[in-house]
Each structure stands twice: as C-alpha cells, then as structure tokens.
C-alpha cells in the first residue's frame, strides 16, 4: 500500500475537502488540517485523480501515481475564488439502530440532466457537495452494504446557502436461514403473492400492506 500527501493554501474559516477518485469513483475522502496539510494512507498502487474542493472555490484536480510502500507527494495547491454564485449541500449519516455515524458511505448527487457527483462520508458521518448550481433540483442517492437504499429529493438551494440534511440508514436485518419447512423468521419481510380463491378471484398481499394486518395460514389441503 502507498500513501498520498500534499498541501493546500489554507482558507480562513473554510474546510478544504480532499477526495481520491479512481475511474470516477471516490475511494477516500479527508479534510485538510488547519495548516492545509492532508495525508491519505493505505492507497493501493495505481493512478488516481485527487480532487481538492472548498465552498466557493474552484475545484482543482491532480493526477497521482501511487507506488507500493512509498509516499507520493502532490503539488501544493492554492484554490481560486469562484466568480459565479454557488450553493452547497452538507449532510450527516448515522445508523438508525446504533445512532453511530457512518463512515465511507458512498453518496451520489444526481442533477436533472443525469450528471452524477459522488462523495464518501468522513469518520464523523458527514459529507459535503460544494459548489452546486443554485436553484436546481437534485436527487441524493445513498447506497451502502448492509443498509436499505435511500433516494432523497433535494429542493433547489439558493445561491451562497448551504442546505443541511441528516439521515439515518436502516440496517438490513440479517435473517437466520431456518431449515426447510420451518417457515420464515419473525422480522423477515413477508414475500408478496397473488393467488386465487376457489372461485378464481385473485388476492394479493400487497393489497393489504399499509391497510391491515394479515393472518396467513398454510394448511395441508384435502389430499
């Protein structure tokens, strides 16, 4: 494994985010420290794009070649203020059950044209999308192993403002596999079905979901 490190000229009261991408996918995300230094350990050898972003500043992209067991220093960067007004989105993700922040969750922001930007949550569970086009609708898509998918509609954010969002991800219950014929465990999702009664009229479980509880009885039949 290799290491990446570099320095960004610090900006008063502005967090600088450093993201490491490979083939368009974010693989690591850190914030530069108070002096503008950053370091990312445990990076597999290969070619990466480093994105350095801060609210209201032009994002800078660097290319880095990481070599095993070596440190790859990156050019010092000074971010330039953006000329156009932009909006920002900041969020926080936690586990619904444990309430603990969730790190390294891939979060995608999709605009109406289908353009996708993605970030990872930091150790604090937070993520940021800087420098968005103001007054535009987005969809936020969150997918993480072991959790239910979420898609959230983001209302247009006015220029210079930062929209804030807190979400809890719902763990997918790991169900025990019961022996054949012993049924599904309590807590499992009931599989949908659509079956006829003796007169051929169809009944679906889905017709009852959200309305009523259902008692479902399996019996052996008239064999």
């Amino acid at each position: 494994m290799g290491r990446l490190n570099g320095q960004v000229e610090k900006i008063e009261a502005t967090q600088i985010n450093v993201r490491v991408l490979q083939d368009g996918k974010v693989i690591a995300s850190v914030a530069a420290d108070a002096d503008g230094n950053y370091q990312i350990d445990g990076v597999a050898p290969g070619t990466y794009t480093i994105e350095i972003a801060a609210k209201g500043y032009e994002t800078v992209s660097l290319t880095a070649w990481v070599i095993a067991d070596q440190s790859t220093p990156l050019d010092r960067v000074a971010l330039q203020a953006l000329a156009v007004p932009v909006a920002h989105l900041r969020g926080f993700l936690a586990d619904r059950v444990t309430k603990q922040p969730l790190e390294n969750v891939r979060v995608q922001l999709i605009d109406d044209a289908g353009n996708v930007r993605e970030v990872l949550t930091k150790a604090t569970g937070s993520f940021e999308f800087e420098n968005l086009q103001p007054d535009q609708r987005f969809t936020l898509a969150i997918e993480h192993d072991g959790y239910e998918k979420q898609e959230i509609a983001i209302e247009p954010i006015p220029a210079t403002e930062t929209a804030k969002l807190t979400r809890e991800l719902v763990p997918i219950q790991q169900m025990e596999q019961l022996p054949i014929g012993d049924g599904l465990p309590v807590g499992a999702k009931a599989p949908d079905f659509s079956l006829p009664d003796g007169d051929g009229q169809l009944y679906s479980l889905a017709d009852y979901i959200g309305q009523k509880r259902v008692v479902l009885v399996f019996y052996r039949g008239s064999w």
Partner: peptide, 21 residues
C-alpha cells in the same frame, strides 16, 4: 406436494411479526 401448517401474522408494513409452526 404439501404445505406445512404454519400461521403468520404480517403487520401493515409487510413484516412478519409472529409465527406458529
């Protein structure tokens, strides 16, 4: 060919809440 006699209670969210075999 046959079902085993199992009874489930499924809640409004579609989750199995009780089972009797």
């Amino acid at each position: 060919q046959l079902a085993r006699p199992i009874t489930y209670i499924i809640d409004e969210r579609g989750v199995i809440r009780w089972k009797f075999l």
